[in-house]
Amino acid sequence: MDYLSAKEVAEKWNISRRRVQLLCEEGRIEGAFKLSDVWVIPKDSTKPADRRKTKKEANE
């Protein structure tokens, strides 16, 4: 399996590196783990849904 760094995933998903790190810390990216001080994320991971959206907005 191929892995990407938080920086590479941030560029791929068009979000900040810090946001990717937070998603990893919260366990919201399946298969991500910390190797020394670096988050390692499976290449085929999908971006988690944004929890800030309400059900009403999602249904529109």
Rank of each mutant, 00 (worst) to 15 (best):
G31Y: 03
K12S: 11
T46Y: 02
K55D: 14
M1S: 10
C24Y: 01
K43I: 15
R52I: 15
S36C: 08
K56C: 04
A6H: 06
I41N: 04
Q21P: 08
E57S: 14
V38E: 13
I41Y: 05
V9E: 00
D2P: 05
A58W: 02
K56Q: 11
A10S: 11
W13Q: 06
L35P: 03
P42Q: 07
D37H: 12
K56E: 13
L4P: 02
P42V: 02
N14L: 12
F33S: 05
G31I: 08
A58P: 02
I15A: 01
R19A: 10
S45M: 05
K43E: 13
D2A: 12
C24N: 08
W39I: 08
A10M: 02
Q21W: 00
K43H: 14
V40N: 08
L23N: 04
D50K: 14
L22Q: 15
K55C: 08
Y3S: 00
S16A: 13
I15F: 07
D50F: 14
E25T: 00
S45F: 02
L35T: 04
I41A: 03
L23S: 02
K56A: 10
K47S: 01
T46P: 00
K47N: 06
L35E: 05
I15P: 09
M1V: 09
K55L: 14
S36G: 12
D50I: 11
E30G: 03
S5G: 08
N59E: 11
L22A: 08
D37P: 04
E60R: 11
L22E: 15
K56N: 02
D50N: 15
P42M: 10
K53C: 06
E11I: 10
K34R: 15
A32K: 06
G31V: 05
N59V: 05
V40W: 01
A32Y: 08
Y3G: 07
R18G: 01
E26R: 12
E8N: 04
E26Q: 10
S16Y: 04
L4D: 02
K47I: 03
R28N: 05
A32N: 01
C24D: 09
G27K: 02
T46A: 05
T46C: 04
